Simulated scan of single mutants.
Amino acid sequence: MARGIGMQPDAVLYRAVIVKTYADGEAVTVHEGPYDGPGPARARVTFWQNHFAERDNGDAAGGHIEHCRPVWEKVPDAAPHPSTRATTAAAEVKTPAGPAAQLILAAMKERRGMHGKHAADLLVQHGYTEEAEQIRCEVRAQSGHLSAKQALHLLSSTTTKGEHHA
C-alpha cells in the first residue's frame, strides 16, 4: 500500500524491528514500516511487547527502531504491453506489394493475435481467393502454426506489384 510520507530529498525513514520469542524457544524477527517519524515505529514495538505480555504463556516480544536515508534510482522501462504487440508487429512488416497484402496489413493494425487462417478468411471475403488458398496451403503445411504476419510475408515474397510469380 502506498503511503504519503513526504519524501523530501533528505528524508529519513524509520521502521520497527520486532523480535518475537515463543515459549518453545523459537525466535522470529519481523520488520514493520516504513514510517516518517520514530514515534509510530516505537509504538509498534510497544504494541507487540504488550500483546505478548497479555498472553501470559511464556511468549515475549522486544525490539528496537532503525532509520535510513533512501537512495532513489530510476527503474528500467518495462517491456511493451501485450496489447501493443499487434500494432508493433504490423509496423515491422515492410510495405507489402499488392492489394491483398495491404488488406491483411490494415487488419493486423486493428486486431491483436490474428492467425493466418483469419487472414485467408479475410481475403476470401474481399475476393482474393488465389491469395487465400496460398495462405491456407501454408497453414496446412505448418500444421496450423502460421500467424497473419507470416502470411503477409508469404504474400509479399511471392507478389511483385500485384502480380504472381510462376
Results as ranks from 00 to 15, higher is better:
49 Q>E: 15
49 Q>H: 14
50 N>D: 14
51 H>L: 15
51 H>T: 14
51 H>N: 15
52 F>P: 14
53 A>W: 13
53 A>N: 15
54 E>H: 13
54 E>I: 12
55 R>I: 13
56 D>R: 15
56 D>A: 15
57 N>P: 14
57 N>D: 15
58 G>V: 15
61 A>L: 07
62 G>N: 12
64 H>Y: 11
64 H>D: 09
65 I>R: 05
65 I>C: 04
65 I>H: 07
67 H>N: 05
67 H>C: 07
68 C>S: 03
68 C>R: 13
69 R>K: 15
69 R>Y: 08
69 R>S: 08
70 P>T: 11
70 P>L: 12
71 V>P: 00
71 V>M: 03
71 V>D: 02
72 W>C: 06
72 W>T: 10
73 E>L: 13
73 E>M: 09
74 K>P: 01
76 P>I: 07
79 A>T: 03
80 P>C: 05
80 P>M: 08
82 P>H: 04
82 P>E: 02
82 P>A: 09
83 S>N: 12
83 S>H: 10
84 T>E: 10
84 T>M: 09
84 T>Y: 03
88 T>Y: 02
89 A>H: 01
89 A>E: 03
89 A>G: 00
90 A>Q: 02
90 A>E: 01
91 A>V: 00
91 A>I: 00
93 V>F: 11
94 K>H: 10
95 T>A: 11
96 P>N: 02
97 A>L: 02
97 A>H: 13
98 G>Y: 05
98 G>S: 08
99 P>K: 14
100 A>W: 03
100 A>Q: 03
100 A>I: 09
100 A>E: 04
100 A>N: 03
102 Q>Y: 00
102 Q>H: 09
103 L>R: 11
103 L>Q: 10
104 I>T: 08
106 A>P: 04
106 A>R: 15
106 A>V: 13
107 A>K: 15
108 M>D: 09
108 M>E: 10
108 M>T: 09
109 K>F: 06
109 K>M: 10
109 K>Y: 07
109 K>A: 12
111 R>N: 13
112 R>M: 12
113 G>S: 06
114 M>D: 05
116 G>N: 06
116 G>F: 01
117 K>L: 12
117 K>N: 05
117 K>S: 11
119 A>G: 10
119 A>K: 05
119 A>D: 09
120 A>Q: 12
120 A>E: 13
121 D>R: 12
122 L>N: 04
122 L>M: 02
123 L>P: 04
123 L>H: 04
124 V>W: 00
125 Q>D: 14
125 Q>M: 08
126 H>R: 15
127 G>R: 05
127 G>C: 09
128 Y>S: 08
129 T>E: 09
129 T>Q: 09
130 E>V: 06
130 E>R: 03
130 E>F: 05
130 E>Y: 00
131 E>S: 07
131 E>P: 00
131 E>M: 05
133 E>S: 10
134 Q>M: 11
135 I>M: 04
136 R>I: 00
136 R>L: 07
136 R>W: 00
137 C>G: 03
137 C>N: 11
138 E>G: 02
138 E>Q: 14
139 V>A: 02
141 A>D: 10
142 Q>H: 12
142 Q>L: 13
142 Q>R: 15
142 Q>V: 08
143 S>K: 06
143 S>G: 00
144 G>T: 11
144 G>P: 13
145 H>M: 12
145 H>W: 08
147 S>Y: 01
147 S>I: 12
147 S>D: 05
148 A>Q: 02
152 L>V: 02
152 L>Y: 01
